[in-house]
Design a protein around this nucleic acid. Structure first.
Lengths: 129, 129
DNA sequence: TATCGTACAGACAGATCGTCTGTCTCACAA
DNA sequence: TTGTGAGACAGACGATCTGTCTGTACGATA
């Protein structure tokens, strides 16, 4: 049976992280940021990762500039949401609520966290009224 | 670079799902549930998956019975929590809060959902008082 | 026009993962 | 006790994924 490939690979994610930080970057900048050096082969590697990310509509490339300028299309929050939906599909028949419950029950939620969460909920109540 | 293998594989997860439903099962029962038939090779496949799950401490095997009875050690909620932590590590520097925010902001959270979530929060307030 | 960095295509190797084959062992019936 | 069928276990294979590299074409700058 065909294994389901991960939509965003580890190496691809590293590239995305830099783009999220910088906003926009060239291959050279990305390579140096990621590998702390910039050889020919490393550049090609990053180039390939960008190519794949472009194919996945996660990154866009400005071909009018030289060298090309790359920037992220996919926002960090969108990726988070996508990942959450994926785990929900795998483990909760697509329902997001069980994830919420799990998160809230997990330790590491301070009183302030709870308070700000209540704020968010109130906000939602207002919006849908 | 070594790719990071996924802790629980798709096929392994399918086995776990059945165990979560049934509570306990033999290889034969699992195979029939998963593949709707029970050939020699399919049985071996399930056997191998169980072996790997056992190695990962997700499943335990009762060797006193014949055939062996298998049951899940890892609970569904625990796996959910683990998955959430994994995405948090990849995308939020380990912080769970951003996930919460994402989830709450996502559509598909009804008024009742919000209300029950408030209940959960109140519960937590009580506990930590 | 020579040179250097970038773009692009293609390929490769290591690893993962689902699957299968083969052998041994156990329980049960004849 | 022995034969039989199902399960346990070990090992291996092959498709696929994924990070990386090589090779070639292209574009800009001196």
């Amino acid at each position: 049976m065909a294994r389901t490939p991960q939509d965003i690979t580890d190496a691809e994610l590293n590239v995305l992280q830099v783009l999220w930080d910088q906003g926009t970057a060239t291959v050279r900048e990305l390579t140096e940021k990621l590998y702390r050096e910039c050889t020919l082969s490393l550049t090609a590697t990053v180039q390939k990762l960008l190519e794949r990310l472009e194919g996945k509509k996660c990154v866009k490339r400005d071909r009018k500039t030289w060298p090309h300028q790359f920037s992220a299309i996919l926002k960090r929050e969108e990726l988070i949401a996508r990942q959450l939906q994926t785990t929900a599909n795998k483990l909760c028949e697509g329902e997001l609520n069980p994830l919420l419950t799990c998160l809230v029950k997990a330790k590491g939620l301070s009183a302030e966290d709870r308070q700000s969460l209540r704020g968010l909920l109130d906000q939602l109540d207002m919006d849908t009224k």
